[in-house]
């Protein structure tokens, strides 16, 4: 375990574990235009933190339960045809506000709110690593198992029905995976930047991919680069680590967009 004694090694492993799950799931978030959905689920997590601390249970469990509740609520409301962007905007930010207020009620516990809002990847311990990799593996297995059905349902719900796939069930799979990723990511990048880890690597990978699988793999590679580079940068310049990772991912996205604008236009 000598390797894991190094906080930098633990932080890198934590980031890579998150990327492994968040990048492929993020592709679905991008393809299905669920960015706000991810935001709402992530922001609800702070409420989960407050509840977990109030009832003295594990933060991971509290976040998972509340994120699941939020994800299922949004998911079922979207099937009823509400105006989604407004509704998600309301839910996402009110969940965050209620969470922050709930945390302030906690007495006797000193809560480092910043750690939950922006993550505290450098403080990741070995038990955290186990949780992160366990959750990430679960998400990967889920996505691997349902991959084809998920893609078909993403393309067109009726196409899925005709092939004997229930798109509502596939949406539940994504909902579950999303809640898991949020619970895994809270320690790494915090509730405010989880959506970034979902969307930015996937969007960066898009110009270089010809099939969904290649896009997912490229997103993992780009996310991993952002994690490793962001960690180094934050050590070098003493910047907050989670935001540094997201900044690097955003820079990679910009470069990828420029590359597409320069070289992509040649073939229509």
């Amino acid at each position: 375990m000598t390797l894991l004694d190094d906080f930098l090694v633990r932080a890198t492993l934590a980031g890579l574990g998150l990327v492994l799950a968040a990048a492929p799931l993020g592709c679905f978030v991008v393809w299905r235009r669920m960015a706000y959905f991810g935001d709402a689920t992530a922001h609800a997590a702070i409420l989960g933190v407050a509840l977990a601390l109030a009832f003295d249970t594990s933060v991971f469990g509290g976040v998972l339960v509340v994120s699941l509740l939020m994800a299922f609520t949004v998911s079922s409301l979207s099937n009823r045809g509400y105006a989604m962007d407004t509704l998600l905007g309301v839910l996402a930010h009110s969940a965050l506000a209620f969470g922050l207020v709930a945390v302030s009620f906690l007495q006797g516990v000193r809560v480092d709110l910043m750690a939950y809002l922006f993550g505290d990847i450098l403080a990741v311990g070995v038990p955290d690593l186990a949780v992160i990799w366990g959750g990430a593996t679960l998400v990967l297995v889920l996505l691997w198992w349902r991959w084809s059905a998920l893609l078909t349902a993403t393309l067109n719900p009726d196409l899925a029905f005709a092939a004997g796939i229930d798109p509502r069930r596939e949406q539940l799979v994504l909902t579950l995976a999303l809640a898991l990723v949020v619970a895994v990511a809270i320690k790494v990048v915090g509730v405010l930047l989880i959506a970034a880890m979902l969307i930015v690597p996937a969007a960066t990978a898009r110009p270089f991919a010809t099939t969904p699988e290649r896009m997912a793999l490229a997103a993992i590679a780009i996310g991993a680069l952002a994690v490793i580079g962001g960690l180094q940068a934050s050590l070098e310049w003493d910047t907050p680590t989670g935001p540094s990772i997201v900044c690097l991912a955003a820079i990679l996205f910009t470069l990828s967009s420029i590359a597409q604008a320069l070289f992509g236009r040649a073939r229509p």
């Binding site: 084809s148 059905a149 078909t152 393309l155 005709a162 898009r206 991919a209 099939t211 969904p212």
Partner: peptide, 25 residues
Amino acid sequence: IGYVPQKLHIDPTLPMTVRRFLDLP
């Protein structure tokens, strides 16, 4: 049943070759 939907909007963010499309599901 073979089903050809009314319209199939493929989001531009989703890369998909014709060959890969035939592999679904």
